[in-house]
Amino acid sequence: MMNPALRRILVRHETLLVVVLILEVLFFATQGRNFLTPDNLTNIIRHSVEIGLLALVMMPIILTGGIDLSVGSLLGLCAVTFGKLWRDAGWGWEWAALGTVVVGFVAGGGNALLITALRLPPLIVTLGTYSLFRGLAEALTRGVDAFTGFPEGFLFLGTGQWLGLPAQAWLFGLVAVGIGLWVHNTTFGRSFRAIGFAPEGARYAGVPVERRLALAYVLAGVVAALASITYTARFGTAKADAGTGYELAAITAVVLGGTSIFGGVGSVGGTLLGVAAIAVLTNGLSRLPATMSSASELSGVFTGVLLLLALGAGILPKAIAALRDRRSSAQTPAQPVP
């Protein structure tokens, strides 16, 4: 399925990320204050679970050549739904959580339906639902309502420790392993890749393209709902603005992780490394004396630069070859631009 040269590039990208990650850790451990402490590592994990979950489901979607801009808004809608079900409808939090997952399923199904049944471009459909889901969250609460005072048992999911790790890390691990196996070890996963490479080809090869695509978007909805639950449990409050901008953070992590935005190439491991590289960077900048007071802005700037560097490193050999090609083919003087 995959040619060996491509595979080498893939492996190399992830090796590169591991190196970046190790360098980051070494740098912040020596230069930063109290970086490598168990409490701080717990922080890093806790703060990246929601974006990590969204990145994990964004990855198969991007693998098929699609995109989902609505996951952050859906997180907000789900958080509000959870609050409504628990406080206003009086459901137990377990049932409210289940209801929220159903809402995520339905919302993801809506995206899936528009994308597969009407063959609309995912970018446009999810741009619409990006506004729609956030708008519904605001309409449900008039923007004002905030849900708080959740029971201890529920808050444990976001603030507790279980077997030495933050509670939500277990959920994250489970989703990561599940998606990893699913994408890399089943025919489903392979068909995603095939769809990303050549949708028509995949169709002729007998892949039920529509059903596979639908599955990816529905899964994104369900996992966005899970993320809304860990978000609410960690933060202790659910409001319509939850998860604003998380879609871009997730896409950034996936792309940094080496998944091609054109589809067909990428790995779950890379995505995890991408999430980790950004999380460590953001946390680390807040512990260097020089950057403590501009950590929020600098983490944005450095993430952007890192993204460009990672991309550049990935295509450098190819680009040099192309440049040489062009130079040799363009011996004639450059023509004026019409």
């Binding site: 409490d39 701080n40 922080n43 978000y231 901008g245 946390n283 807040s286 512990r287 802005e297």
Partner: peptide, 18 residues
């Protein structure tokens, strides 16, 4: 960088471990 309440919590938690 934008009024984001969850991000406030994250920064405070980072300050605790700092």
């Amino acid at each position: 960088t934008n009024p984001d309440p969850a991000k406030q919590n994250e920064i405070i938690e980072n300050w605790i471990t700092l």
